[in-house]
Simulated assay, not measured.
Amino acid sequence: MNSYRTIYEYGSDEFTEERSRFIGYAKPVKTEEEAIEFVNEIKKKHKDATHNVWAYTIGPTMNIQRYSDDGEPQGTAGIPTLEVIKKEDLRDVAVVVTRYFGGIKLGAGGLVRAYTKGAKIGLEAAGIIDRIWYQEVKIKIDYNQIGKVQNEIMNLGYFVKDTIYLEDVEFIIYSKPEDRDALVERITDITNGTAKISDGEEFYLTEKDGKIILD
């Protein structure tokens, strides 16, 4: 999988609906064990709450999906919470929506809307991001080629992780795998084949609004 959507960090937000207090929590998780641990952590934090509804998805294809209404009428809480995660196409995410009952019943439709909103605000507070697969490309050149190579890299929109100045100058570039050959071809062309180009590691990087965020 070259990319997937998830959330950046732990986040929470809350609102009040007909005197009931709803708190939405969201956290990135890598395993089902981490998701369960997070759910239990929030349940312990709000052990006096009326309900702690939760849902999570794990795996690149959302192969693990779980939810709980935690005492709310069936289909009014856990499934709406899970559906928000799925609608946003998020992987490796756990959400808990805590409710403190305020004395006024919301009805089935009202509960669905409230838990949907609770999940949304929790995810928004956590920050929805893209995880993109990148290839590290190392370009070693002579000092007299710095200007044109640097300008070309910037014009092509590649991300420069580092520039190392030793006997030669080495640029360490992040490239999407499908763009790697075009980069190599262009740098080879403008340096008349004198650039020494090698591949480094491959890994997921975080992107938000199309820009790389270094963790």
Rank of each mutant, 00 (worst) to 15 (best):
G103Q: 05
M62H: 14
K86C: 08
I104R: 04
I42T: 10
G75V: 11
G71P: 09
K45E: 15
V137C: 12
A49Q: 03
A125Y: 05
G78I: 02
Y56A: 09
V53Q: 04
V160Q: 03
I104L: 14
R91K: 15
M154H: 14
D130S: 13
A55M: 06
K148A: 08
I85H: 08
A114K: 03
H46T: 06
H51M: 02
V137H: 09
K44R: 15
Q150G: 13
K117N: 14
D48N: 14
G109N: 07
G118Q: 11
T61I: 09
E152C: 14
Y143E: 04
W54Q: 03
V149Y: 11
G157D: 11
L111S: 09
L90A: 10
I85T: 08
W54C: 08
V53H: 10
N63R: 12
D92F: 05
F101P: 06
A55S: 13
M154Y: 15
L106D: 02
R66W: 02
V93S: 03
V160P: 02
T116D: 06
K45N: 02
G75M: 05
Q65W: 01
E83A: 07
G127Y: 05
T116A: 05
K105R: 14
D142R: 09
V97D: 07
G71V: 05
R113L: 03
Y56M: 06
Y100C: 06
N151W: 10
K44C: 00
P73E: 06
R66H: 11
A119G: 08
I132S: 09
K43L: 01
G118L: 11
L123S: 07
G122N: 10
G78P: 11
I141N: 10
Q74T: 14
T57H: 11
A119F: 01
V53L: 03
G102I: 12
F38A: 11
D48H: 08
N151P: 00
G71F: 00
L106P: 04
A114I: 07
N151S: 05
N40H: 04
G127V: 01
R131Q: 13
D89A: 05
D162Q: 06
N155C: 00
H46L: 10
K120Q: 15
D142L: 12
V97H: 02
I141A: 13
S68P: 04
G109V: 10
A94S: 15
K86S: 07
K47L: 05
D89M: 03
K120C: 02
Y134N: 03
T81A: 06
I64D: 01
V84Y: 02
A125R: 12
V39A: 09
F159K: 14
